[in-house]
Nucleic acid binder design. Sequence first.
DNA 1: TTGAAAGCGATACCAC
DNA 2: GTGGTATCGCTTTCAA
Lengths: 342, 342
Amino acid sequence: MKPTIYDVAKKAGVSIATVSKVINNTGRISEKTKNKVLKVIGSLNYQQNVIATALTGKHTYTIGLLIPDLSNLFFAELARSIEDRGNELGYNLVICSTDYNPEKEAKYIELLKRKNVDGFILASGFENTYEVEKLIEEKYPVAIVARDVPAFNVNAVCIDDFQGGYDAASCLIELGHKKIAIIARDVWSNRERIRGFRKALEDHGGIEEYEFAQFALESSVQAGKTISLEYLSSSDPPTAIFACNDLLAIGAIEAIREKNLRVPDDVSVIGFDNTVIATIIDPQLTTMAQPIQHMGREVMDLIVAEIKGEKQYKSRIVLDTKRIVRESTAQIKRKQNANKKS
Amino acid sequence: MKPTIYDVAKKAGVSIATVSKVINNTGRISEKTKNKVLKVIGSLNYQQNVIATALTGKHTYTIGLLIPDLSNLFFAELARSIEDRGNELGYNLVICSTDYNPEKEAKYIELLKRKNVDGFILASGFENTYEVEKLIEEKYPVAIVARDVPAFNVNAVCIDDFQGGYDAASCLIELGHKKIAIIARDVWSNRERIRGFRKALEDHGGIEEYEFAQFALESSVQAGKTISLEYLSSSDPPTAIFACNDLLAIGAIEAIREKNLRVPDDVSVIGFDNTVIATIIDPQLTTMAQPIQHMGREVMDLIVAEIKGEKQYKSRIVLDTKRIVRESTAQIKRKQNANKKS
DNA sequence: TTGAAAGCGATACCAC
DNA sequence: GTGGTATCGCTTTCAA
């Protein structure tokens, strides 16, 4: 069996209280006994039992991470960057995929509470903020990432989705596009991006938003393709598509090809996220980059500060997106069919 | 504060022993007191503290998952499928990315032990099997996935890497290729794939393996591209490339294009894994599919059975790979320069 | 400077 | 059927 503090105490000829003190470097112990205990700890290869420590009111050094889907590259990259920073700080992650399902969100939170995690990093949907508010009320350290929740006071690291949407639209507008479609899943951050997108159209004037048919049901290539196909099949299709993530954008590209059109010559496409696939596909995807590494790092720092009680106030860190122009967007070429109403 | 078993006992007017019994459905309690206690539990919204339970020798319902890199799509998909099955079975995952670094592997194992995880699922490198053997010796439930370790007795779910390599090579050979290059990172499963690959060349005869220059340093697009570029720059380049994962294969495709050659007309490429990117890129990648979902499910079942003590013997489950022919491979067209030695 | 003992929240043995 | 109590491994207060 693994040695316990009792084994150490016995072998060192001291009490467990003394051993505890040298482990935690608390209280006052003589150099002599301290060294003696340390030596025994080494020889026994003793390791503190985190579970027992946690039971006395200490931390578990484990943080719950709720994300929509671990197999979505954006979240996988985000989780990895959070994990890395956690590792530097001595924390592990229990990762839970929620599929944006409120029941799963609630269930996982309940379960993680029972496991005494030190805090929660939330990157899931939480359309219903009730669970989050409850968590905060119960004094659990909470930090939100990749999703803004302006409604209440909570630590958060997010991007400026409005600005990102605005910039994506601007990119297309500057290239001369006058009829632009949007593809998005119906989650909070996308609604912000759409808002920004529309504001850009408005600000420039004379730009038409292609009739918004429906939200994507999921953030997949297939969903992007299905919706794009619909757009492109109309009598007066858009000349540019803004997809709210890279996967949907790739679906758009596939749809465009299936219609025997070319990207970007016939239709431009801009994505969002800048995951590694953006550079992998051909043509390489123009997209709005999210600072994933940065976000992961910041949110872990935030929650650890909160756990350690170092924070007086909640912080909200808003990071900027960056327009990455690659090959999927181009100056508009073909004149549209004479389709102005007048 | 969260209610404890004492709160429940007091409010129900019974002892904590009784409460414990109704929670765990052990011992004998009258229907009456049982209902009474249950009601109080409901009204107090009492939840068992997993930490305290674990301290009495019970399980934590948490399993450590060690993988090389969470942001690698193959492992992200694998982790997700393991997580899903774990969720069905009541287990959470602590996910640790090791980067194939033995020190990280050892460190994480040590840490997870201290946290009393119920077992370990290992998908990392573990070139040095010492850590794994130690774990098994110490009676920790262990299951290995996506990596075969034939040296000793351990639960494992893996694919037949040798067969996969053999089949990949056969695919190329059947298309008439006579000079084939291979790209791989130097990890165990790839060495098996290479072995299978070579056996296929041998079995068919007259096929030349393109001089194997070096192992890839990482499983990235860039690494695949760099090595492919080198191959393609030689005076007598290969007509087909077998890459040991999809990312490397994509790098190969990029390299081929950079050389102003076409895929698959000039050079065929076959990958390995069949992650979602295989269908995303153009041309769609011919690849050897790993049954990721199946693997995740099986390995979780294996470790849970082990944890519950339901297993008398270790199991090794070997799954087959499947050849998925898409667009990146084609019948050889161009005659090679007259380069036969005689 | 050291250690005895209470307590963290639960389980389980053994009386009653 | 029910409950008192030792126990899990550790921290912390308080005496000595």
